[in-house]
Amino acid sequence: MRNLERRYRTLLRVLPRWYREDREEEMVGIFLAGRGDDLDLEHGWPGWGETGAVLGLAVRTHLAAGAGLTGVPVGAMWRGEVVRALGVIGLLLGVLGVGVSLAGMVYEAGHPELPGRDAVVVVVDLLPAVAFAALLAGKRTLAKSVAFAAAVPGLLAFGPQVGSWLMWQLPALVTFAALCLGFHREAPTPPAGRLAWWGGGALVLGLAGWVVPAAFVVVAALVVLRVVAFVRGDFVLGRALSLFAVLELGPVALLLAGGVRWWVVLVPAVLLVVSAVAPVRKPGFA
């Protein structure tokens, strides 16, 4: 085997094994068909464009959508659905934040002595709702772009306290990555009607987040949904919430730094750990 072929085969290892077993020989044949020069076969490398395209294919196959491919193992389909659910949960978290901001704006409007918000801040605060609506409308590129714009202030808040910043930002960063990776070209658009209700619920919970710390509201909602997912045997939602519970441990722990008593923080922390490790029921994948 020549070096170039070895390098292409190494590149193809980013693809899942089930896909490689079916396609590797065929793909290597195409890669090498246009590269017959002896020097190239010995010293050549896969181009950046080819590498990028294979990486894109790897994301789509590892996080497979049931309708987008044939012969997909059940595990790959589940993985894809869980990542997409985690991406949607991230957007719902953003919508909840919009509720908190709206409640704050209403309060400030009734108290003229308080300093008003800058127009840019108001727009940025509302962006998660736009991203969520865009995803429901099937405009996934727009949804990702707006979600990124909404995440920029958090990213720019990077400072000397890296640990605290990471703990606070991790849920937003990971769920944004899940949104980008999970909603690839072949992924289905989530059911708009059902998710609109979820978005409305998150907005209402956000309004409640003005009264009690939003982190507590998030934990309470997470625990309730986790129980519902278990009872209904919803593996995808259950697993996505487990992952999200792990991510939320950071923001809850940071409440300690905010002066909240340790025993008040202990309760949501324990609930998050239980949500993370609690079993999920795995029915047959429809």
Binding site: I30, F31, G49, A53, L55, G56, L57
Partner: peptide, 11 residues
């Protein structure tokens, strides 16, 4: 690109 071609063919 080959990766793109297989994405299209799969679909």
């Amino acid at each position: 690109r080959v990766g793109t071609l297989y994405g299209v063919l799969d679909r």
